[in-house]
Structures are given as structure tokens and as C-alpha cells.
Design a protein around this nucleic acid. Sequence first.
DNA 1: AAGTCGGGGGT
DNA 2: ACCCCAGACTT
Length: 381
Amino acid sequence: MDQRTAKQYFSTELLNWYMQNKRDLPWRRHRNPYYIWVSEIMLQQTRVETVKPYFERFITRFPALTDLAEAPEEDVLKLWEGLGYYSRARNLQAAAKQVLELHGGEVPSEKDAVFNLKGVGPYTAGAILSIAFNQPEPAVDGNVMRVLSRYFLIEDDIMKGSTRVKMETLAAELIPQGRAGDFNQALMELGALVCTPKSPHCLTCPVMEMCKGRIEGREDTLPVKKKAKPPRPEQRIAALVTGTSTNEGKILVRQRPQTGLLARMWELPHVLASVPGGLASQVPDEPAMDMMKGHLLEEGYAVNPKEFWKIAEHTFSHIHWNLQVYHCEQAEHIVSPAMVAERNESYKTEGDVYKWIGPEDMETMAFPNVFLKLIKEHFVL
DNA sequence: AAGTCGGGGGT
DNA sequence: ACCCCAGACTT
């Protein structure tokens, strides 16, 4: 009979399994704290397979922390294009500058210093400290909470902060002496490959014999998690404005404000068209087209709506966009000097900057995916 | 504690 | 359609 406790068994068997089954991932090829840090930021709420190409391009362009710290923010955002949660990119660069000024360019290995880096929370701090410096700190993410909730049959709601703290205490107790980095990665690897959210592969699990959740037949009902609120629907009218005369071959885009949703990203002009709970309008929607035309005129751009192009849908965590996209054409009009002055003033305060761009500009300007797809289709890129 | 912040893959 | 993902930050 196995004399080991459930915790001893778990730690030993899981670590042995990991050493035999760990994946060859780009950020596991070196033990460069900067690489590990970048990978952990990218991996927040993002799958491994999605991150791989982004990570490769990022460290090719910014091989060292100094390269990232000194780069134009536009370059950083462009490399993050399509990855989502763009404040991660801004915070990462800000933190790189922090490291340059406060720690001589070396990623700190002291707990408080790591925690104080922008964009580094409880999980990422633990990941950096354990994986890069092998310090015995827990790194509790969604994978870890799922694995622990099943193995130890913990029924606390994992959405609660108090549950994460409880899991961190437990995870810290499980770390084998001197093996923090490997063990923490083993926990996440098990969650990603075996102890999956749906249909966990218990038959091939290295710790199935003493898994309380499996023994009680609860593996499909754990972890306990309160359901998230559904995203609120928003109907929006977008314009793909093609330029005339000096703007022939170009389209009109604008840059979003410095804060909030998709901060500082470029986009096609669009306006909110519906009241919450209102019915989706049919296309072509003449009043909506007039609203779009009026909106752009206020911004100083006269356009003639042509025809409905297509519907584009995009879901954020908390908002669902239904975009009616219309083809428009730049129109001649006279702008008074007063209007130009007023507009320039509003640029400073609101941050909405409009610009005519061609296909070549797509190489430097960062767009959220919903607009990226539309514009690439228009330019046939 | 609840809301904000992307995007895609798996089922 | 819904769920979830190597979460952090703001209010």
C-alpha cells in the first residue's frame, strides 16, 4: 500500500510525468527571464498555440529588454495586433522602462520588485519568480485552479478572490524542494493536456489514483464557477470611405482614444446606432446611413453613402458588436477655418485622429481584427 | 466584489 | 451557442 500522503503522491507523480511529457515551447528553450516574462504576459487569457507566432516575432524584433524599452509604442502595438487585451502590450513596455531605470536592465528576482512591475499580478509574479529564478512561489492560473479543485475536491467558486488565495496557499505547500519552476509548469501542463475543462482524460492522468474529484465522480462538475454575464449587444454603423482626387486609392481611418476599449488602435469610422434592447435594423438602413454621414460631417469629412457592403460581428468579453458596413465615397465640400480650428482642438482632448491611408500603411498601423479583416479584403491584401 | 479589457478554438 | 483560456486593473 502507498504510504505517501495525497499531497506527496501528487507532487512526486506530477513532476515525474512532466519531465517525461513536457512540450517543446519557444519560451522553454532558454532560461532568459525577459523571454519568460514576455511569454507569461502573452499567455494571460490566451492559448499556447495562439501565442507561439507572436512570441517568435516579438523577441526577433525586441531580442533584449532594452530593445523593447526603447522602441516606438506604435511598433509594440503592431506586434501585438490581433492578440487582444492591448493594455498588456502598453504595460509590458512601461514595465521594461521601469526595469531599465530601477534595476539596471536586469529583470528583478526579488518578490516585491517583480510584483511592482506594471501588468504583473499574483499569477505572473509567481510564474516569473518560479520559472525564471526557481523560487518557491505559487503560480495559480485557471489551469491550476481546475486541477487542484478536482484533485482535492474543492468546491469554492474559483471566480472569487478568496478562492485564489486559498489555492495559492495549497499550491505553495505542494512545491517539491528545489523544483518550483518545473512543478508549477507541470501543474499548468496537466491542466492544458490532461485535466481539461471538458472531458478530462482521467485514464491517462498521472495522479488519477488519488484524485478525490474523480473517485467521487465529480470531475465533470468541478471547478465550481459562477456564470459570467452575457455581453451587451451594440448595433453600429461603419463606413468604408474611399478617397477621391488626391486621396484616390486610399480609405479613411481614425485612431481611438488613449484609454478604454482598443486604446490607440486604428479603425474604420463607426457610430452607435441602436438603443439597448432595440431591434436590429434591416439593411440597407437609410436613417443609419444618414446618421453616419452626419457624424463624419461633424468630424470634418463629407461623404456620400453608396451601398451596403456587409455585416461584421465581433464579440468582446462584455460587448457584442454588430457592424453594418457601408461603402461611401469622399465628397467635395468647403470647410471653414473656424471648423478646422475647432476640430484640431477636439483632437487634443478626445484623441480621435482621422487619416487617409493606402495598403502600405497597414504595415505600421495596428488595427483590431474585426477592422483588419475588412480592410485587408478591401485592399485585397 | 463587480466591471473593464480581445480574440479564437473547442465542443 | 456557449465556454474557456498560463489575468490584471479599475472602481
